[in-house]
Design a protein around this nucleic acid. Structure first.
Lengths: 171, 171
DNA sequence: TATTGTTATACTCTATAACTATA
DNA sequence: TATAGTTATAGAGTATAACAATA
């Protein structure tokens, strides 16, 4: 599989004017579907990350924003479970959203608080959704509807195989 | 798009016995191809990363090992350019490979050294290639050859669109 | 006893800057 | 002047542990 620890490898291929013998290397990984999948995923997320900077959002904060919008009243712990984020790391994120006037909290439990978007939060979420849609459309532009459907099916098949992989891994 | 900052989100869905209302959340991101692509890519790399621990290799060190094998005499800087790694971060990696007896250096330039695998390095690379092949096969098992080819084509189309994305992004 | 939210802290990965030796 | 390799360090992102308040 691959590697490209750096996200921006995909922005501009690091080519120099002299080009000593930089990209003449054989890379035995690039024929793998796993590699191509990762490379493509990185290209898409990299583009989206760039576009989101205009809204001062990251991929994580985008997710938090949209999930709160779709689930008014969720707690921080709910978000953590959904996103695989530690509670300790959600605290500064929620704090920032509060400071920016994007969310408001209403006591739910005494120990927990339901989160919901303010008007500013809804506006930002709407702008974010437009950016996400543009990102999606740009990368899918080259595929017909049928091809897009086949891609989804293929990805679902690969993703489902993670169960098999986990089982054989333990053996 | 998505988010799953944690790689292991995919191993075992974090479900509790009580299941308060943890996974009843609407996630407006999961219908996006970009999300599904990332989710699938994370599942595959997560599995591979796990399997590689038996060889004391990471995704990055795997790539370095296989690229040295395929390109005897490459320099550290060559590897850095190919992988998008900073020179400063390649140093400890190359040092460890040396300590493990996997690579040897031969002066090339006076300021640079060509890297090549030792016998132990070749053995480890062979074992690593078997693991990579098993990982690839496991996830592709559900697709026919035609479907695999279509998947590759679709990924190539998405990846190519990064150029268009970069252009429209600047505008 | 378990859960929520918080604080403090440690670890990993990646980035930057500065240095030497060589070209 | 530019490049190779190194060192030290800074910055994200994520992890653990412990705590007070509540259930």
């Amino acid at each position: 599989m691959l590697i490209v620890p750096l996200k921006h490898l995909l922005h501009d291929p690091p080519m120099s004017s002299t080009m000593p013998h930089a990209d003449c290397l054989q890379n035995p990984l690039e024929n793998l579907v796993g590699f191509q999948l990762r490379q493509t995923s990185l290209a898409i997320t990299s583009d989206l990350t760039d576009r989101l900077t205009a809204l001062s959002l990251t991929l994580v904060s985008l997710s938090v924003l949209l999930i709160i919008e779709a689930n008014p009243g969720v707690t921080q712990s709910d978000l953590c479970r959904q996103l695989g984020v530690k509670r300790a790391n959600m605290t500064p994120l929620a704090y920032q959203f509060g400071e920016r006037g994007l969310i408001a909290r209403q006591p739910a439990d005494g120990r927990s608080q339901g989160l919901h978007l303010t008007t500013a939060g809804h506006d930002l979420a709407a702008a974010a959704r437009r950016i996400v849609a543009a990102n999606e459309a740009t990368f899918l532009a080259g595929l017909t509807s049928d091809q897009q459907a086949e891609l989804r099916d293929a990805l679902a098949s690969l993703h489902a195989a993670r169960i098999v992989a986990a089982t054989t891994r333990q053996a």
